[in-house]
Design a protein around this nucleic acid. Structure first.
Lengths: 341, 341
DNA sequence: CAAGTTTATGCAATCGTATTCAGTTAAATT
DNA sequence: AATTTAACTGAATACGATTGCATAAACTTG
């Protein structure tokens, strides 16, 4: 008669069966007679009963929950979050929902002890790691995850020594296509904006794709045309300044992210250069703003819906004990106004 | 000597105390001797021990988790999620993280039994409801939440009969400012895009602010200049078509969302009209794309960082048993290119 | 019809922590 | 010195499900 919450005991009593049978019935166990099951379910519905997921989780040792860990550029502080990852986040959540998994979202600084926090504290059955940025020290922690037998998938590149499952887009191929397109348009001096050293493996792969395209067309790779930039808009602006100051001739820029491209275009405009007449620009990611920008931005599209779907299905597969291989998604070039032609 | 996970018993044994003391020490209870506490904490660290949140939650009956329920326009299916809400989502998560709360994200169709699902199943201590869209039947479910004594806050307007705590921006005031600005620029025939009837209370409030501004300037409110539109870009396009077909003269549009505004501008352009020379357009939300759009979009800015902060602090306050009042955030007009002047 | 199977069900033991209640010292008070 | 008080600690239990094991009834089968 307690005013407490309804438990499986209450509904067991009401249905004239044991609590164990209630538990089984609600989970559609074949062990319980169909008629009994229906009766139990009806009573449960009448009492607005819902299984206490905490208790269930404790007993069964899994939470039916996936954790998304989004690693932020520590530099970014209070500014808005990279729209590309927000979009990923949304699509992952949807994909998880389709499979009846809940999603726990968490922003992390790379310095944190995230590798312990979720692996052990039983909040999630598996982890999805998302993020650009400086991955130094990242591999170590991922290794700890592996050793702890945590289930997780990483979005991004399969870095050196990065064990575990990875879902990523074929950055090199996307960059190759983008650069080749610029070459096809007759551009000869194509600059690359995006870090190659301390930055993310994604950016490095994009640089490699860029180099490959140049070589494939018989053009020289001029290291002096590569400028560091993290994924922010401001980085695009400063890279542009560096480029201009270098005095090198250039007629195109391939930026490792849309935000970099946008930052660059704004800066170029401020200097009186016309896009795409004087300079062709191509970005990467195809964030929503890319199509709204003026000029609309030619960019490499990553299918975040497919990516979310893949990440989730991969991770859930691993949770269920299946053996899975890393996957590479094929990006596609979206041609818009910023490159001319 | 089980190979199982480390529990509080393991560390109790290792530290030569009881499990109860371990539990207390790790939670900084004043009941345990400082020296003992330090020793316990050290052992815990050595063993990489983390409290099992599931077990803790079961025992203490709270999860230290907030759930975000994002209500989607059922029309939207697989398209991308409204960037405004993605941004809210990000900022809420950050605000929650600052207070050491985890965040559970869930997309819901309004038809679902969400009102039961989270209220009872103990997944979250409190709920944040987000979403535009048709709120019919929404109030009922919110009432059920209230009756079930669920802790929750709603983002949006305090609708009729919408009990419970609400955090929202002052839509009427934002709309008033936006419309007044258009009037100040000399526009006389200002259309309004956004539903007034079956749509969200937010949109209705924005319409009211629009009307108020017209009246305050001694202008007529012409009901024929109001066109229904949900928050999507396509809706903006179709509203534009309707407006053009109506044959009414117009020199400005106030759209209830940025996406509507963008859809409208694209359509107007396709018809050969110049923005802002022929038609001034103002939006609402200040999504990232607004500043990138061509022409850059004049819009009403909602501070999503402050909103996230408010929602979380309010909700956690309620969870802790404090009495809280609904809050109204002040939006601000961001003047850009699309309105001229 | 006896023996073996299948089908449904209940009992009771977990899962790992938080917390109540009852000590056991050591310090303070009279 | 006797007694109260304060400061810690531990044993035991509760949280609400899941699940291995035992068992009874119903059903096959030779």
């Amino acid at each position: 008669m307690g005013s407490g919450k309804t438990t499986s005991f209450d509904i067991a009593h009401r249905a004239g069966v044991s609590q164990a049978t209630v538990s089984r019935a609600l989970r559609d166990s074949p062990l319980v007679n169909p008629k009994t099951r229906e009766r139990i379910k009806r009573v449960a519905r009448e009492l607005n009963y819902q299984v206490d997921r905490t208790a269930a989780g404790l007993r069964s040792q899994h939470s039916h929950t996936l954790a998304i860990l989004l690693f932020e550029d520590p530099t970014t502080d209070d500014s808005q979050i990279n729209p590309f990852f927000l979009s990923m986040l949304g699509n992952i959540t949807r994909a998880a929902a389709r499979r009846n998994y809940d999603v726990l979202v968490s922003f992390q600084q790379l310095s944190d002890d995230w590798h312990i926090k979720y692996q052990v504290s039983n909040r999630a059955d598996g982890i999805i790691l998302l993020g650009y940025g400086d991955y130094s020290g990242f591999a170590d922690k991922v290794d700890k995850l592996v050793k702890a037998k945590a289930r997780f998938v990483v979005w991004g590149a399969t870095g050196p020594g990065l064990s575990g499952q990875t879902i990523g887009c074929d950055n090199a191929s996307g960059a190759f296509d983008a650069t080749s397109h610029l070459i096809k348009l007759g551009r000869k001096n194509i600059a690359f904006f995006g870090g190659t050293t301390h930055n993310s493996p994604e950016f490095r792969q994009r640089y490699e794709g860029y180099c490959k395209a140049l070589r494939a067309a018989g053009l020289n790779v001029d290291a002096g045309l590569q400028f560091d930039a993290d994924s922010q808009e401001t980085a695009g602006a400063s890279a542009t300044v560096s480029l201009l100051e270098s005095g090198k001739p250039f007629d195109a820029i391939f930026a490792a992210s849309d935000l970099i491209a946008i930052g660059a275009i704004k800066r170029l405009r401020a200097e009186g250069l016309r896009i795409p007449t004087d300079v062709s620009v191509v970005g990467f990611d195809n964030i929503p703003a890319a199509s709204y920008f003026n000029p609309s931005l030619t960019t490499v599209h990553q299918d975040t819906i497919a990516a979310g779907e893949q990440l989730v299905s991969q991770l859930i597969g691993m949770i269920k004990g299946e053996q899975r291989e890393s996957q590479l998604l094929q990006p596609s070039l979206v041609i818009r106004g910023s490159c001319g032609g």
